[in-house]
Amino acid sequence: MKIAIPADEKILSSDVCMSFGRAPYFYIYETMTKMGDFIENEAASSPGGAGVKAAQIVVDQHADILITPRCGENAAEVFKATPLQIYKSKNGSIADNLDAYLNDKLSQLENFHAGFHGVAGN
């Protein structure tokens, strides 16, 4: 099973990124091998629709679980077409949250925000 977590930095002690769509990196962890990798989030610099593209990247990584503090409606719409499940992160590092999930300490994310679109004035 694969787990994806938005990350501020490419280290396990990094905080979980406050933004899903515009996180600089995603940490992708495979529970079978207990190995993980950081990948760049190409959506981070998008002029618009970052959530959609970030969701596409996470789905293309074949993630089954996403752990994130929040998620927009458009990204949620993408995930709805897949079996992926979204869990709400808690304060702490990526390692803490991975641990919390594996020990059944996280609950599913149920609220999706309407996004921050149009602020760039394009």
Partner: peptide, 8 residues
Amino acid sequence: FNALAAIV
């Protein structure tokens, strides 16, 4: 603008 996504 990422207005399209190809999922499954």
